[in-house]
Design a protein around this nucleic acid. Structure first.
Lengths: 203, 203
DNA sequence: GTCTATACTGCGATAGAC
DNA sequence: GTCTATCGCAGTATAGAC
């Protein structure tokens, strides 16, 4: 049985790991209902029996996959938000970072899955990740406000929610139109609204 | 056979209509893959054979349902955006209008359905509706810029994309956390960014 | 541990009585 | 037009050989 949280040596090459990876891909592409327990081992080149040896069933495997996806997304965001630059620049870097826009957000997507939302265990990693992201962005906005980069009247938590929502909604617009253009437009619009007055910017 | 577009007398009470209505509900709650051709007539109190008499199958019925949902969403938005008030006030009214936040957007939700996105026919009503909404908002932003309510440097299309994205992403945040609070925070944040300078506002 | 074979349940659609 | 009966197939899970 695969133990969630451990990596069994640190290499991502055990059978359990490969099953989790193919589940992550399938959840991203097709969502929970659209992912069959037959397709998972098929994609990782294993037999179905092997899967049921390592995991109790589809929900168990989904939990492991969702946890890992959430962890990864958080690490990626952390890398950008903890980077160098002014608060505005770090937020800009986050908004402009490379994304597979048309594939959607592997975490945000799950909120449209009724089964995921109905299960506290499956929803928790999604909630915690988006919540962490909002709090981290709120800190940065507050920091920018103190240093004069952002307008004094802004509320850090509210702006953080707007930033995350713009990204998540950008995926929706892009997928609807079949082009990343709308995502980029939304980001540019938000940046223009956040843009500090000229006299506080670097030359 | 039900004819898409006609209402067969104008009353929403024919069998075809009831089937479309229950399909709309199910698509909203469970998405395309999660909606079985058994559940649809069941919910509308009919037998399965009746459904296949009126519609060619699940995709046909989904098309009729999606078209009607898109039409309704557009009419709702139009009612608010064509209402009285300054450009800022109309955008505020749109952002603050009553919503069943935790249920998500019946139109935007469909973009996370691989089957819907893969079909041009099913995706078209979704795309057209969100596209119309962005264009309408862009006009209003441009209007506000000319009248001095919005900053001169803003781009109407970009801000419109940001507005729609904030709403769509707000649903994601709300569903992730199980509370509408994050949606409201995102909207307040956006409004504070859009907020015209004090000297241009009504007293 | 991994595989193939098998069971059971629903999905998606059709047939044919009324 | 509507219903019940039925079909073939895929989803979900288990059994048991290797």
């Amino acid at each position: 049985m695969y133990l969630a949280g451990s990596r069994q040596g640190g290499f991502h090459c055990s059978a359990g790991d490969r099953l989790i990876e193919s589940t992550r891909e399938l959840l991203w592409e097709r969502g929970y209902v659209g992912t069959s327990p037959k397709a998972i081992p098929e994609r990782s080149g294993a037999g179905q029996g092997s899967m049921y040896h390592h995991f109790k069933g589809k929900p168990d495997l989904a939990l492991a996959a969702i946890r890992r996806t959430a962890e990864e997304m958080r690490a990626t965001a952390e890398g950008v938000l903890d980077g160098p630059g002014t608060p505005y620049e770090r937020i800009e870097a986050y908004l402009r970072r490379e994304r597979d826009v048309l594939r959607g957000c592997p975490v945000g997507r799950l909120t449209m899955d009724p089964y995921v939302i109905a299960s506290d265990a499956l929803r928790a990693p999604v909630d915690e990740t988006l919540d962490w992201l909002r709090e981290r962005l709120a800190q940065i906005v507050e920091e920018g406000r103190e240093r004069g980069g952002f307008a004094a009247g802004l509320d850090g938590e509210e702006i953080a929610a707007t930033i995350v929502a713009t990204v998540q909604g950008g995926y929706v617009l892009a997928r609807a139109s079949g082009s990343p253009a709308a995502f980029d437009a939304g980001v540019r619009g938000l940046l223009s609204l956040l843009s500090p007055p000229a006299d506080t910017r670097a030359p």
